[in-house]
Amino acid sequence: MNTKYYRTWEEYKAEHPEIDERLEGVMVPKMQSYEEMMFGFVMMLLM
């Protein structure tokens, strides 16, 4: 998906190489939950 608002964790990390392992451990669960919420929202709109 090519949008300036929606980013997967892999895309975000590629754009921000300064993220260290400690920070990554905190950010990964949050970003993954945002991805799942976005998917759920889109599915709700389609139903």
Rank of each mutant, 00 (worst) to 15 (best):
Ala14His: 10
Pro17Met: 04
Lys13His: 09
Glu10Cys: 03
Glu35Val: 06
Met43Lys: 05
Glu24Ser: 08
Met27Val: 00
Glu35Trp: 02
Phe41Ala: 10
Asn2Cys: 11
Met47His: 09
Leu45Cys: 07
Met38Cys: 12
Met37Asp: 08
Trp9Ala: 00
Gly40Gln: 07
Glu36Leu: 09
His16Gln: 07
Leu46His: 10
Tyr34Cys: 04
Tyr6His: 11
Ser33Val: 01
Glu35Tyr: 04
Tyr5Arg: 03
Met44Asp: 14
Glu15Val: 05
Glu35Ser: 10
Phe39Asp: 07
Lys13Arg: 13
His16Trp: 07
Gln32Ile: 00
Met27Thr: 01
His16Met: 08
Pro29Arg: 02
His16Glu: 09
Thr8Gln: 02
Arg7His: 14
Lys13Gly: 02
Phe39Pro: 05
Arg22Leu: 06
His16Lys: 08
Met37Arg: 12
Trp9Val: 02
Met37Ser: 15
Ser33Arg: 12
Pro17Thr: 09
Glu24Lys: 04
Pro17Gly: 03
Trp9Leu: 04
Tyr6Val: 09
Gly25Glu: 02
Pro29Ile: 01
Pro29Met: 05
Glu11Gly: 09
Tyr6Lys: 12
Met1Ala: 14
Met1Leu: 15
Thr3Glu: 11
Tyr34His: 06
Tyr6Phe: 11
Arg22Gln: 12
Asp20Gln: 09
Met43Leu: 06
Met38Asn: 06
Leu23Asp: 04
Met38Tyr: 11
Thr3Trp: 04
Thr3Lys: 14
Met31Phe: 14
Met31Ser: 08
Lys30Leu: 06
Thr8His: 01
Ala14Thr: 15
Glu21Trp: 03
Thr8Gly: 05
Met1Asn: 14
Gln32Gly: 02
Glu21Gly: 09
Glu18Thr: 06
Glu15Lys: 15
Lys13Val: 03
Tyr6Thr: 11
Arg22Val: 15
Phe41Met: 13
Met43Arg: 02
Met44Gly: 10
Met47Gln: 12
Val42Glu: 11
Met38Val: 09
Tyr12Asp: 08
Lys4Val: 13
Glu10Ala: 09
Glu15Trp: 04
Met44Arg: 05
Gln32Asp: 00
Met1Cys: 13
Arg7Trp: 10
Met31Thr: 01
Met47Arg: 13
Arg22Ser: 14
Leu23Phe: 11
Gln32Glu: 02
Met44Thr: 13
Lys4Leu: 15
Thr8Pro: 00
Tyr12Met: 10
Ala14Ser: 08
Thr3Gln: 15
His16Gly: 04
Ile19Ser: 00
Leu45Met: 10
Pro17Arg: 05
Tyr5Thr: 07
Gly25Gln: 12
Leu45Trp: 05
Leu23Pro: 01
Val28Asp: 00
Met38Phe: 07
Thr8Met: 01
Met27Ile: 01
Tyr12Gly: 03
Ser33Lys: 07
Met38Ala: 13
Asn2Lys: 08
Tyr12Ser: 08
Met47Thr: 13
Ser33Thr: 09
Phe41Glu: 08
Glu35Met: 14
Asn2His: 12
Asn2Ile: 11
Glu15His: 03
Val26Phe: 05
Arg7Thr: 08
Met43Cys: 13
Glu36His: 05
Ser33Leu: 05
Leu45Gly: 11
Gly25Trp: 01
Lys30Thr: 05
Lys13Leu: 02
Asn2Ser: 12
Ser33Ala: 04
Tyr12Trp: 13
Leu46Ala: 15
Pro29Cys: 00
Ile19Cys: 02
